[in-house]
Design a protein around this nucleic acid. Sequence first.
DNA 1: TGAATGATTTACT
DNA 2: GTAAATCATTCAA
Length: 211
Amino acid sequence: MAIAASFAPLPRSFYARPADVVAKDALGKILVFEREGVSLAGRIVEVEAYLGIRDRAAHSFGGRRTARNEVMWGPPGFAYVFFIYGMHFHLNLVTDAEGLPCAVLLRAVEPILGEEVMRVLRGTTSKSAKAMLLTNGPGKLCQAFGISRAHNGLDLCTKPLYLSAGDVPRHIKSCARIGVEYAGSWAKRLLRFVDSDSRYLSVRPGRRTGC
DNA sequence: TGAATGATTTACT
DNA sequence: GTAAATCATTCAA
């Protein structure tokens, strides 16, 4: 198994590109979170891109700048964490240039390090005891890593939370984003990217996603 | 000051 | 396959 010391944060230049480019490039990268001496890591296998003020599905649509999405307007390479549905957190990577509120939503990872810790943080029930179910969803991923609103605005180019280089997936598929049917034509844009070889995806290939 | 809603997950019929 | 849980944020008044 890989050791934590071999992980190193990606440079800010990785994030300083359009969200759809960063999203596709983020597949196969390693999400690392070092908390209280324990390292958690997972390989990114599913992401979605949100393209700023033109994107009806994005929080920053129409140029709305609020206390919640303030981080999206800042420089790239920072974490945008928000709370939704009264019970879930979502983790995003702020991308592109400062002033352009674009982001990449992390939807699923494959556990690499600290699976036991993730299991505890998730409070596994008998039905979610399988490793596969630990991090295959945006809300689950945050719970498994112990990420909450306290981590909103963290610099992803330094510890404790960052992305590290990883292998490139052999097969990348793009399809429609999840849960944004209200966004009109934007809901049909292929801004969701998955490693189609992974079994850790949040939504299985089917009619709803067009995969 | 109050009401509506959402980048979801889970359990149950 | 359908519905409930649950609350910060946002918008209207």
